[in-house]
């Protein structure tokens, strides 16, 4: 265990001392809160009654912030391949599973902090602005709202872990970012064009983004393709699968 702790410490030192990575985290927070604020400011409740989910609207920025989380995760590993640092890293810590676990732990910690700030800021913006646009206010301590907020933080962490796994397998940063963003965005686009209700439901159920963001729903939705917790479980499966693929490639390949 202490090997993991030392590896994690080394990873934290890398993140801390590399210029740009912590700025990227700050960027995730700012982008998420900015997009959420812009969305809640632009939406108005029609006179016929609001059908929009206020908590979900307040968390729109997460869809942009996740891209930042994905880049951070990709840079953690692809950056090392780009500079050749990875050879030093695996020389220092020859157990490659430990290296990847340490990276995952540091990444999860960073995204947990940044995600909490980003989601907190977005919820605050929604709470302050939405009632002025005709929506009923919501309390952040309501069960479903709290679940949506905490789930969104967890969503960012899981997207980061999925990206870390993909980047470990792909190694090149541009290809890794392209693959992750393509994977995230493919399912909602496809779901928007298919008209077969079965296909629609299944695409929504298996997509990492569509399933994972189901956790943001706070109004009763009996016709939702997937519930909040099963959705998060689907995303967790994707993240674990990605990490395992990355680990397999990492172990059996020369660095």
């Amino acid at each position: 265990m202490s090997a993991l702790r030392q590896a994690a410490r080394a990873e934290w030192t890398k993140v801390r001392t590399l210029p740009g990575l912590l700025w990227l985290l700050a960027g995730v927070v700012v982008l998420t809160v900015a997009v959420s604020t812009a969305t809640v400011a632009a939406v108005h409740c029609p006179a016929a009654g609001c059908t929009q989910d206020p908590a979900k609207l307040s968390l729109t920025g997460v869809q942009f912030g996740q891209a930042g989380a994905a880049v951070l995760a990709v840079l953690l590993i692809s950056g090392e391949y780009g500079t050749g640092m990875i050879r030093t890293t695996v020389t220092a810590v020859p157990q490659r599973a430990t290296v990847l676990a340490a990276k995952a732990a540091v990444l999860a910690g960073l995204l947990l902090v940044a995600g909490t700030l980003a989601v907190g800021g977005s919820m605050l913006a929604g709470r302050l602005i939405l009632p002025g646009n005709g929506f009923t206010g919501f309390s952040p301590w309501d069960g479903p709202v709290l679940r949506a907020a905490a789930g969104s933080v967890l969503y960012l962490v899981l997207v980061g872990l999925l990206s870390l796994g993909v980047a470990t397998a792909v190694r090149d940063s541009a290809a890794a970012v392209g693959a992750v963003l393509g994977l995230l965005y493919l399912f909602p686009i496809l779901a928007s064009v298919v008209s077969d209700p079965h296909w629609y439901r299944h695409l929504q159920q298996i997509g990492p983004m569509t399933a994972g963001l189901a956790v943001q729903t706070t109004i009763p939705a009996p016709d939702a393709p997937i519930g909040p917790y099963p959705g998060l479980a689907v995303l967790t499966t994707w993240a674990l699968g990605g990490l395992l693929c990355g680990l397999a490639a990492f172990r059996y390949r020369d660095a």
């Binding site: 891209a67 940063s173 970012v177 965005y185 686009i189």
Partner: peptide, 20 residues
């Protein structure tokens, strides 16, 4: 690469997804 790819994809593809 990573920053540039992300910025372009987020600027072009993500708004399209959110809108369409």
């Amino acid at each position: 690469s990573a920053g540039a790819v992300t910025a372009v994809v987020v600027a072009i593809v993500l708004p399209y997804i959110l809108a369409v």
